[in-house]
Design a protein around this nucleic acid. Structure first.
Ligand SMILES: [Mn+2]
Ligand SMILES: [Mn+2]
Ligand SMILES: [Zn+2]
Ligand SMILES: [Zn+2]
Lengths: 146, 146
DNA sequence: GCATCAATTGCAAATCATTCGCAACTGAAT
DNA sequence: ATTCAGTTGCGAATGATTTGCAATTGATGC
């Protein structure tokens, strides 16, 4: 999550229960992993963190699809052809951005967002409704600058 | 291109020649197609516009890779897992953004950019060098709003 | 606890975009 | 016309993601 404090596992499983979804071993393990990671994770990374025999990669793909549909995780696209997911706080929509090192792939959470008034102007000028944006920053992190 | 006026084919082929690259049938056809399209095209779309027998899909992939390396096209990512390419004017770096309709996939070229001073602050705050951004807007176009 | 059943999983096969190997081909320069 | 590095076509790999399906398992109610 972006906001800082980790979510209670109970709050997470509660959200699943409310949708008459089962709290299965793989799902609990996935949520536990996400809860402990501050930056977006790929499905493969989640898979690697899973205890051996803790689940199949396809199960993770299906779990992330479900969690995204329920608004419990947010999908991010760093432009490398691999989806990444981050836990979203209850009530939050998870919208935020990242600064990614193009050398080491290090990630920094960014609080800034695209200015609302400019986005509103873009929407109005073109007659578009429900406008949002996808935005990520790229650069070289301090360590990689030598 | 974003700036408006179409590029001369001669200017494009000249850039290839300077790099001791051949002006082949497929490449000329691809450049011609890109020259006549104001918005980013997928390789498959370019392929479809090619005269029958005018080239192989793999050739287009290779051509776009080359053109991108030479800075003649800019790659865009609309988040649907398919790369899109747009011709870049000489001397231009092609950096700009789009507003995409999530219903009909219609595209509008956007002149606005993420405010420089905020980006500089983000870079400085985190000690990152050479920071840029990838930004696209999404919404529902006038037609798709019913 | 135990039966019941829809939801879920594991595994393999299928999809899709993109890349690659390689022999045949062709611009461009001589 | 000759020559050869750069290109192409085609099919086979790759890598991420999805899907079919039979076997498994939470959650609910006895
Ligand atoms: Mn984040
Ligand atoms: Mn454009
Ligand atoms: Zn934002
Ligand atoms: Zn910009």
């Amino acid at each position: 999550m972006h906001s800082g404090q980790k979510q209670e596992l109970a709050s997470l499983t509660g959200r699943l229960r409310r949708e008459s979804r089962k709290i299965t071993g793989p799902r609990a393990a996935i949520l536990e992993i996400l809860r402990h990671h501050p930056h977006p994770l790929t499905n493969k990374e989640i898979f690697a963190e899973l205890p051996k025999g803790g689940g199949d990669l396809a199960t993770i793909y299906r779990a992330m699809q479900l969690l995204e549909k329920l608004g419990m995780v947010k999908r991010f696209d760093f432009g490398d052809g691999t989806a990444r997911f981050e836990l979203v706080g209850e009530g939050d929509d998870g919208h935020h951005h990242h600064l990614i090192c193009t050398r080491c792939a290090g990630v920094v959470e960014i609080a800034e967002c695209f200015p609302e008034e400019i986005e509103r102007r873009i929407a109005r000028t073109n007659g578009y409704a429900g406008v949002t944006h996808r935005l990520e920053f790229f650069g070289i992190c301090p360590d990689c600058q030598q």
